[in-house]
Design a protein around this nucleic acid. Structure first.
Lengths: 125, 125
DNA sequence: TCATTAGATTGACGTTCGTCGATGTGATGA
DNA sequence: TCATCACATCGACGAACGTCAATCTAATGA
């Protein structure tokens, strides 16, 4: 699934703040076409989610779990930040569509959305 | 050339602010290993360069030129921003290693550094 | 030499971001 | 019912960011 297809999924529109701003958040690689303003805003938003070292480490921790879920309870230790700060960063990753969350009992579990990472990769290609 | 090799080039160390912070700015894909703190800081810096819509459009404009150089004199019109603002953004793209610059006479010419874009792509893979 | 030009730098501004203590929310189990 | 736990939200703070007018720098050509 490329970025174009990905953006068509209406559930993304309904569940994530970033992309609900514009349902047509799709673009070809930066080396193929010049981005229009709307595409640029949406893409910048996605890359901004990756533009913080704490978020990159949190994402990398989840992405390296081999498809397994990761408990939010482990993430304060991984990041070295307070619980509210981790929660803040996870929300940004979630809003960017890079991770999914599921609450089971008291714990929240996160897993990667690989297609979203692939989508961003394809934009750079 | 992957991200690892790329970072070894000493001329990058000498000419670009971002990477001079740490000569060992190399990392495997986020799905393979958990990033250490140094890698995360350097990568976050690279993605931050892509985290602004004006910079994305400037970069896309240069990247879409098919290997040709682009004159700085055209970029205020492309971006719809003032000359100092464009200069500021180009410096950030340059410091991130995404573009090269060359001054000839009064004009400055920019071209893409494709390997740098490839390097970031490989981190997402 | 000097006026002109392209682009970089400076300084100031309002805005956004990362951070954490305090507090809110909702599930758990006794 | 109520204390406890995991996580989210709020509010406040300083730092970093995007922006542009004013100015500086260096190349040009007369």
């Amino acid at each position: 699934m490329d970025f174009f297809d990905h953006c068509r999924y209406s559930w993304l529109m309904a569940s994530r703040k970033t992309l609900t701003l514009d349902p047509i958040a799709c673009c070809s690689p930066v080396r193929t076409d010049v981005l229009d303003e709307t595409q640029a805003v949406l893409l910048a938003n996605s890359f901004a989610a990756l533009a913080d070292p704490i978020r990159l480490r949190l994402l990398s921790h989840i992405a390296s779990a081999g498809g397994e879920e990761v408990c939010a309870c482990d993430l304060t230790e991984v990041s070295g930040r307070s619980q509210p700060t981790v929660s803040h960063h996870m929300k940004i990753l979630f809003d960017a569509g890079l991770i999914e969350r599921e609450k089971r009992g008291l714990w929240v579990w996160y897993r990667l959305v690989p297609s979203r990472l692939d989508a961003l990769r394809s934009v750079l290609g």
